[in-house]
Simulated scan of single mutants.
Amino acid sequence: MSELQREFRDALGSFATGVTIATTVATHGAPVGVTASSFNSVSLDPPLVLWSLAKNSQSREAFSNSGHFAVHVLAASQRELSDRFARSGADKFEGVEWLRGKLGSPVFPEFAARFECRTRHEYEGGDHIILVGEVVEFEAREVAPLLFLAGRYARHQPDSDTTAESEDILNEALSLERALETVVEGRLGEAELAETRRLMQRIIELARGASS
């Protein structure tokens, strides 16, 4: 890689993206998948999306010949899955739960969003091919997505309204803990009081996690 190419890659890294795993099947029916951050929307009518794959990828033939693919927008909790499918030369699906989707592509049960697509176009794109798919099935969930920025994973930051609401929950939980201790002190047995405190501490931990 030349110095100019490296600088160009770094400049592109300034654009934060989600992280996806695209899947399909090989000619003999084996599941195929690869991590990609090149996913993008194209059209609402008809519903089209695109992503790109390196021409030297071992998965290229499968994606070019299958006629379909699925794209999983990963949740923030799926970093390990992203790393697994970014590697080559291993059985990426070993130990991973998946099913056959509507068109036959492997689909995972966990995701932030999932799009099952029929391949409509394949274009030349320099050292990549660009795959355009017509979405035939999709689903989205209210979970934080996995993000990628400047060559590394990035953290999703909730908006200010969500943060303020989480802080209110935390303050209310702390107040409730103090109030409960005042009420139950001397009225519950030692075991019951310990369990009440444990439950309140758990509520506080959850509230703190939501506000961080």
Rank of each mutant, 00 (worst) to 15 (best):
191 A>E: 07
96 V>T: 09
5 Q>G: 10
10 D>Y: 15
179 A>S: 08
44 L>K: 14
69 F>Y: 11
54 A>S: 09
158 P>N: 06
86 A>I: 04
114 R>C: 09
53 L>R: 14
13 G>M: 01
191 A>D: 05
92 K>I: 03
5 Q>V: 05
16 A>Q: 15
2 S>H: 11
200 M>L: 13
113 A>G: 12
132 V>Q: 08
125 G>P: 07
40 N>I: 11
170 L>A: 00
46 P>C: 09
211 S>H: 06
184 V>N: 09
70 A>V: 09
85 F>L: 03
134 E>H: 11
4 L>A: 15
57 S>V: 07
180 L>W: 05
31 P>F: 00
100 R>L: 04
161 D>R: 13
29 G>K: 00
113 A>Q: 04
97 E>V: 08
126 G>L: 03
13 G>K: 02
172 E>Y: 13
203 I>G: 08
117 C>Y: 06
116 E>A: 06
179 A>N: 09
21 I>D: 05
67 G>A: 05
195 E>A: 02
122 E>S: 14
129 I>P: 06
108 F>V: 05
186 G>R: 00
4 L>C: 10
23 T>P: 02
209 G>T: 07
117 C>G: 11
82 S>Y: 12
111 F>R: 15
137 E>R: 14
79 R>V: 00
179 A>C: 04
119 T>R: 08
151 G>I: 00
65 N>M: 04
89 G>Q: 13
92 K>W: 01
138 F>Y: 15
46 P>R: 14
146 L>W: 04
90 A>H: 15
43 S>A: 08
210 A>S: 13
84 R>P: 00
48 L>Q: 07
187 R>T: 00
13 G>I: 01
7 E>D: 13
36 A>E: 15
117 C>S: 14
208 R>A: 06
110 E>W: 12
18 G>P: 03
44 L>S: 11
20 T>N: 13
34 V>T: 14
114 R>L: 10
94 E>L: 11
103 L>S: 01
150 A>Y: 12
10 D>F: 10
